[in-house]
Nucleic acid binder design. Structure first.
Lengths: 234, 234
DNA sequence: GTCTATAGCCGGATAGAC
DNA sequence: GTCTATCCGGCTATAGAC
């Protein structure tokens, strides 16, 4: 994947490529709706295609077909394939972050961690393609989102790790390495989307049901809580 | 990735494409060595390139350069790009399997599971590119190795799951869902290769050291054993 | 068995009609 | 703002000299 040289400005990443010039004075509101709907359709289609084929394997023609639009329209809303890919990634990242709210010093470890795991698993079940696009980007060295990982994500994990260490100091749980704990939770939940063929094959099913996700969630919550020395019953 | 229509015969997958015709009677042994060395070089280079770029993103030219060979030689040893990719995958799969030997009814759960986790983590640390090629194949729906997953892998996991259930019946550990336990172990170890950029970013390091892997292994072993109710300290 | 040169195709991007 | 037709670069695969 040779997208490392990507350097377009941020506003080009959200489909505003041509808009800056087009929005002379007061544009009719109807046009805005058309644009928003088209952009939403394209992003949805792109997420699916990028998830299945990766960046290089996906073609603009495939995405256009999935979005029910002529290929040229994609290039109208997103100047390049890389810009479209970035927009899909940005959307995914926005989903990924706001899940850690429950991890606060004044919360109980058992409920906070259990809720976090449940939220992560739920996100995996409801947005498997987003998870796959993200995984693909990681696999190939995170050329697009390396900066985000080192800034926003690191800051967030640093903060939440302190909370977990605080809990351990209070004797509410074992002294674990909080960062590696996060790696385990992320990996164990996202694997149900990223490695779905393997999971399905081993379970002998064509696809995962709601019951499968519930079973996986329940077991993982129990494993993590008990493994961290958190007494959840009482 | 449009490799689903792949249907070459098995012997073409191992670089024997032209050999059947070339090996008229007794071929000189030196030639064999040249071939073996070239094939090994190509496979090594291909693994690296496929891991970094995925199937579609990788180019035969890149692989040729990495293997220090002209591009046409790749097509001599492996008729097509897909055949080369399959060969890399096959090599990876052979690494993946033989790690479960220690999980036997007569073994102690604590040592057997701990050793299994350590072995998996060691494989991740020493063959990160193999892990990434495998992950990439999973992400894209496992078009090449779906059959392997449903046959060999499922059979293996079914067998080992019975062992774990047997241990639980004996009261040596909790009753856990063995299949989901395997998913957690696989995901938690492979994430250090597949999601390495994320791990490095969060830890604030440029690359993972031996000490990082040891720390990760130690924590994961403790988490899993304790989480499964296995008393490892007598 | 090795390599250069090239055929042939495919995909991203765009020009320009409507 | 939408779409058809097309350009152009890059990639796989192979022909054919050595």
């Amino acid at each position: 994947m040779r997208v490392t040289e990507f350097s377009a400005r941020a506003d080009a990443l959200r489909g505003n490529a041509h808009r800056a010039g087009a929005a002379v004075a007061a544009a009719p509101r109807r046009k805005e709706h058309i644009r928003d709907a088209a952009v939403a359709d394209i992003l949805r289609a792109a997420e699916r295609v990028f998830a299945r084929a990766g960046f290089s394997g996906a073609t603009m023609a495939e995405i256009a077909e999935a979005a029910n639009l002529p290929k040229a329209n994609l290039h109208y809303y997103f100047r390049t394939k890389v810009a479209l890919y970035r927009a899909v990634l940005d959307h995914t990242l926005s989903l990924w972050l706001a899940q850690t709210d429950g991890i606060r010093r004044d919360a109980a470890p058992a409920t906070a961690l259990a809720e976090y795991i449940r939220a992560k698993m739920h996100l995996t079940a409801t947005h498997p393609d987003a998870s796959r696009v993200f995984a693909n980007e990681m696999l190939h060295g995170a050329p697009q989102i390396g900066g985000y990982l080192r800034r926003e994500l690191k800051a967030l994990v640093d903060e939440k790790s302190q909370v977990i260490e605080h809990w351990a100091t209070l004797g509410l749980m074992d002294h674990v390495d909080a960062r590696h704990l996060f790696f385990t939770i992320w990996a164990s939940t996202q694997t149900y989307a990223d490695f779905q063929p393997q999971v399905c094959a081993v379970l002998g099913k064509a696809k995962l049901t709601r019951a499968d996700y519930e079973r996986a969630t329940k077991q993982l919550v129990r494993l993590i809580l008990k493994g961290c020395g958190i007494n959840s019953k009482v």
